[in-house]
Simulated scan of single mutants.
Amino acid sequence: MPIPDFQSVMRPVLAAVADGAPLALSELRECIASEFQLSEEERNERLPSGKQTVINNRVGWARTYLNKAGLLSIPAKGRVQITERGREALDNGPARITVGWLKRYPEFADFHTARPADSAVPAVQVEPVEEATPDEQLADAHQALMQSLADELLAQVRAASPAFFEQLVVDLMIAMGYGGSRKEAGRATQATGDDGIDGIIKEDKLGLDVIYLQAKRWANTVHRPEIDKFIGALTRQRARKGVFITTSEFSAGAREAALGLDIKVVLIDGSELARLMVENNLGCSVKQVYEVKHLDSDYFSED
């Protein structure tokens, strides 16, 4: 069974504490995972941040929303308990409790409605995608922004000259930690007579080994013959490591050609190139930083 969205979790959370006794959050999570018959893989699936499982995040937000609506109380650290309002919701509420339904409670509506501070202009209220928790919405928005940036970067790279692209490839390798400074670590070879090699970079600051680069600013798919030529060039250089980077993509035959060799050949297509540029701040810079904080429960421990 797919992992339920956090609204689908709300009523089962109330039902799990219907007997009125406080329940540990860990037990609540187990109850919900069992209720929806989640597999071990589904129980262990994590958010993009990797810091929390998806089901625990959704149970946690369901608990928060129900608490803000007055349907649940938190009598002690890590515990939940149903309230009289919660019992009434179980008896008379809908089969699926949603954020929209919870807005009938003024305290929840106040909590859920954003109020930009010191704003003279009324904020335009945009209804969020309520199937996702706030953590998931933030992660999805970040991913969408990163994908948009990657698309813009790739378009710029494709519009650049071949010489610029060859130097960009060297700059990327240096930004990833190979060799140290640009002056000492890497260089683009001459446009002619390069024998199929577009760049050479030290693998480490001491230059104990080098990596040979091939850069193809192409719109068309790179096929196996190009990889075979690169492997031949590496062989003539007695090289052991090579990186082939393109702004397009590799065919299945090209990827197969890079496997099972004594020489290590890494293929980086346009999508991976853009991702690495974003990750290493090459051709882009940080616009704004948002800090996401959470409660430090250890601070409030009186033990």
Rank of each mutant, 00 (worst) to 15 (best):
P2R: 09
R11K: 15
D19Y: 04
A24Y: 01
S26T: 12
E45Y: 00
R46D: 02
L47V: 09
G50Q: 11
K51H: 09
R58M: 02
G60T: 01
W61G: 00
L71Q: 01
L71E: 01
I74R: 14
R79L: 05
R79I: 00
E84F: 04
R85P: 00
D91M: 05
N92T: 05
A95S: 15
R96V: 15
V99A: 04
W101S: 11
L102H: 08
A109R: 15
F111Q: 07
A117G: 01
A117P: 08
S119A: 13
V126N: 04
V126M: 08
T133I: 10
Q143G: 04
A144W: 07
L149T: 11
A155T: 09
Q156F: 02
F165M: 09
M173S: 11
A175Y: 12
G177C: 03
G179F: 06
S181D: 14
R182Q: 12
D195P: 00
I200S: 03
K202H: 08
E203V: 01
D204Y: 01
K205A: 13
A215C: 10
R217T: 01
R217N: 15
N220K: 15
T221Q: 14
V222C: 05
D228W: 01
K229R: 15
G232Q: 06
T235N: 10
R236W: 01
F244A: 10
E249D: 15
A254L: 11
A254Y: 11
A254Q: 11
A258V: 07
I263V: 14
I263C: 03
I263A: 07
G270R: 05
L276P: 09
M277N: 07
V292F: 14
S297A: 10
D303Q: 12
